[in-house]
Simulated assay, not measured.
Amino acid sequence: MAQRAWVAEPSGSASRNWMRMLCREAGFEPDIRFTTDDLLVQQQLVADATP
């Protein structure tokens, strides 16, 4: 998971802060390449990236 590109809500949002905290606790900094608060767009980005 640490090597993959990530999608997240905009900076300062509670969900983005929570996700970054969990990743850091797991020992890595997420590579957030996409930012959107539209959950359907997030879902499509993940689906497109999933092998």
Results as ranks from 00 to 15, higher is better:
Ala8Pro: 02
Val46Leu: 14
Trp6Gly: 00
Asp31Ile: 11
Arg24Pro: 00
Asp38Gly: 02
Trp6Ser: 02
Ala26Asn: 10
Asp48Gly: 15
Arg4Phe: 07
Gln3Ser: 13
Ile32Arg: 00
Met19Cys: 13
Thr36Phe: 04
Leu45Val: 15
Gln42Gly: 07
Met21Tyr: 04
Pro30Arg: 08
Thr36Ser: 06
Glu29Cys: 12
Ile32Gln: 01
Pro51Lys: 12
Arg33Lys: 13
Ala14Pro: 09
Ile32Trp: 00
Gly12Cys: 09
Gly12Ala: 08
Trp18Asp: 10
Leu39Phe: 13
Val7Asn: 09
Ala8Asp: 00
Gly27Phe: 02
Asp31Thr: 10
Met21Gln: 08
Cys23Ile: 08
Phe34Asn: 04
Gly12Asn: 07
Thr35Lys: 02
Met21Glu: 06
Ala2Trp: 03
Leu39Gly: 03
Leu22Ser: 02
Ser15Pro: 04
Arg16Cys: 02
Ser11His: 05
Leu40Trp: 08
Asp37Gln: 11
Ala47Val: 14
Ala47Ser: 14
Asp48Phe: 12
Asp38Asn: 15
Glu29Leu: 15
Thr36Ile: 03
Ser11Tyr: 02
Ala5Thr: 11
Asn17Phe: 05
Cys23Asn: 02
Cys23Tyr: 03
Ala47Leu: 15
Gln3Tyr: 09
Ser13Pro: 07
Thr50Asp: 03
Leu22Thr: 04
Thr50Met: 13
Gln43Gly: 13
Gln44Leu: 11
Gln3Met: 04
Arg20Pro: 00
Val41Asp: 06
Gln44Ile: 10
Cys23Asp: 00
Ile32Asn: 00
Met1Trp: 08
Leu45Phe: 12
Asn17Ser: 13
Ala8His: 02
Val46Pro: 02
Trp18Ile: 11
Gly27Gln: 04
Gln44Pro: 11
Thr36Val: 03
Thr50Ile: 12
Asp48Thr: 14
Arg16His: 01
Ala47Asp: 12
Gly27Lys: 04
Val7Tyr: 04
Gln3Val: 12
Val46Cys: 12
Pro30Gly: 04
Ser13Phe: 11
Ala8Trp: 00
Met19Gly: 10
Cys23Glu: 00
Gly27His: 04
Val7Met: 08
Ala26Met: 14
Pro51Gln: 06
Ala5Gln: 10
Ser15Ile: 13
Arg4Trp: 05
Pro30Thr: 07
Glu9Met: 13
Ala49Asp: 01
Met21Phe: 03
Ala26His: 09
Ser11Gly: 01
Ser11Trp: 02
Trp18Gly: 06
Arg33Ser: 01
Glu25His: 13
Ala5Glu: 10
Cys23Trp: 02
Gln44Trp: 08
Asn17Glu: 10
